[in-house]
Design a protein around this nucleic acid. Structure first.
Lengths: 233, 233
DNA sequence: GCAAAAGTGTTGTGTCTACACCCATGT
DNA sequence: ACATGGGTGTAGACACAACACTTTTGC
C-alpha cells in the first residue's frame, strides 16, 4: 500500500484518479461529501472522495467503485462527468490527472458515511486539498444550470413530495429564494412533474393538505430547449 | 518510433491521448478536420487529430501542440474540453484514455493542412476510427447549444462581417435556416454585436450596402442566462 | 423604373414573474 | 371564527418568430 511517490513522478504515463462532487440537500442547505486524507500529500486535509483508476474499468465504474466505500451506490440518483484536470503541478508529489464527476443524492436518504467522511455546506467550504475547491464550485454551478433547463431535480428529490418540499430543495441548490407558485407552474407546464393523486395530511397547525407529486421521468432530460435560434416552422 | 503496443496494454497506467474536434464553416457547411492514420490500429482510416500527452504539459497544451502540426494554433479562436473517454475496449491494442477538445476556426482563415489531413462535412462523415464519430457529433452538439446562449459565434466569424454573412455561418453550424432579421435583433438586443460604422459596397447586382458588425467580445460569455428560476427582484 | 439586397415596423404568441385572491384543514 | 399553509386567477413584462414594408444601391 505504501510506495514512494517520487519514482512515479518521472514516469512516462500519468497516474489517473477519479473524484466526485457528491451533493445532497441536507438541513435546507446544499452539502458536499468530503473526505479527510489519511496520507501525504495533504495529510489530514479535506478533499473529494475518489481514488486511482484501475485496469479494465471505465472512469465511471472507477468513481462508482470508490464511492461505494463512502456512500451506497444505489443512493446515487445521478452521476455525470464534469471535467479532467491536468495541471502538472496540481499534485506536488506525482504526475496525476483527475477526472471529476458530479453525483447527486436524493434528500430522503441518509447514507451511513465512514468516520473519515462528512457532509459540509458548499457555501462554507474548509480549505480543500489540491484544486478541489474549484471542482466543488464547478459541480455546484453545473447543478444550478441544469436545474433551469432539465429535469435534474429528480436526483435531489424523494420519490414523492409536495411543491413546498420541492421548493425548499430548489432554493437550497440554487442559493436563492424560489416561489412555490412559479416553480409548480414551470414544472407542470413542461410536463416534468405529475400529481400522484395522493395528499399529505396537514400538521397540528392546520392548513390545506398538500397534493403529492413525482417526477415523470427519473432519467436526465432536457426540458427547456434553448430559447433562441430554433428551426423555422 | 515503432514499439510493440502489447506490453503497454498490461501496464498499470493507461496511455493518455488528446483529440480535437476542429470545426470551421467552409463552403457554407460545417466541416471537421480529419486525419488519416499512418499506423495500426485503424491504419488508413480517418480519425481526429491528436496524440499522446507528454510529461510536464496540461491536456490543453498537449492538444494545442498536436494541432500545431495540422493547423496554425493562432487560427484557433476557441478551444474547450469536451469529455474524457475511457472504455477499456475503445482502443483494441492498448489501454488508452482520450480527452477530447472542441476547437473552432474562424471562417476567414484557410489554414494550410498537411497531405494526410482534410476538411470533411460533419453531415457526411466517413467511417471513423475508434469512437471518434460520437466525439465529432458531441462537439457539433456542444457548438449548436452554445450558439443559442453564448457569444461563441465570435469563434466562427471573421473580425468584421455583415448580418447576411453571419446568418450563413449560423445556418451552417445549426443545420437549419436562420432569419437574418431575427438573428440581428437577438444579437443586438443581447449586446453581443456592435456596428463598426463601416459599410460594405454592394456587388454588381446592386442592393443596399450592408452595415458591418463585430463581436463586442472575443472571449466566451454567457449572454442568455437560463430563462427560468432566476433570483427574485 | 426595376430588381436586388439590407434593414425596420408591427403584430401575435408563448413564457415567465408578481401578487391578489380563494380553498381546505386544525384548533 | 380564525390562523395556517396550499393552490389558482390574472395582469404585466419580455423575448421571440413571422411577415409586411421601407431603404439604398446597380443597372
Amino acid at each position: 500500500m505504501s510506495r514512494k511517490p517520487q519514482p512515479e513522478s518521472t514516469s512516462r504515463r500519468p497516474a489517473h484518479v477519479t473524484l466526485a462532487v457528491v451533493l445532497q440537500v441536507r438541513d435546507a442547505r446544499l452539502q458536499v461529501l468530503l473526505w479527510q486524507r489519511a496520507r501525504e500529500p495533504f495529510l489530514g486535509a479535506w478533499s473529494l472522495p475518489g481514488g486511482y483508476l484501475e485496469a479494465g474499468e471505465t472512469l465511471e465504474q472507477s468513481i462508482r467503485r470508490h464511492l461505494a466505500v463512502k456512500v451506497d451506490v444505489r443512493e446515487l440518483a445521478h452521476l455525470e462527468q464534469l471535467e479532467t484536470l491536468s495541471d502538472p503541478a496540481r499534485n506536488p508529489s506525482e504526475w496525476e490527472l483527475a477526472t471529476a464527476y458530479l453525483g447527486l443524492v436524493p434528500a430522503d436518504v441518509d447514507p451511513e458515511v465512514p468516520d473519515d467522511t462528512r457532509w459540509n455546506p458548499v457555501s462554507r467550504l474548509p480549505e480543500l486539498a489540491y484544486d478541489h475547491r474549484a471542482i466543488v464550485l464547478a459541480g455546484r454551478d453545473r447543478l444550478r444550470a441544469k436545474l433551469s433547463y432539465t429535469n435534474i431535480g429528480f436526483a435531489l428529490a424523494p420519490p414523492e413530495f409536495t411543491i413546498s418540499e420541492l421548493r425548499e430543495l430548489y432554493a437550497a441548490a440554487l442559493g436563492h429564494e424560489v416561489s412555490a407558485t412559479n416553480l409548480q407552474r414551470v414544472l407542470l407546464r413542461r410536463g416534468v412533474l405529475e400529481p400522484t393523486g395522493e395528499r399529505r395530511e396537514p400538521g397540528r397547525t392546520g392548513g390545506r393538505p398538500a397534493a403529492l407529486y413525482r417526477f415523470r421521468s427519473r432519467g436526465l432530460e432536457i426540458t427547456d430547449q434553448f430559447a433562441v435560434l430554433r428551426p423555422p416552422g
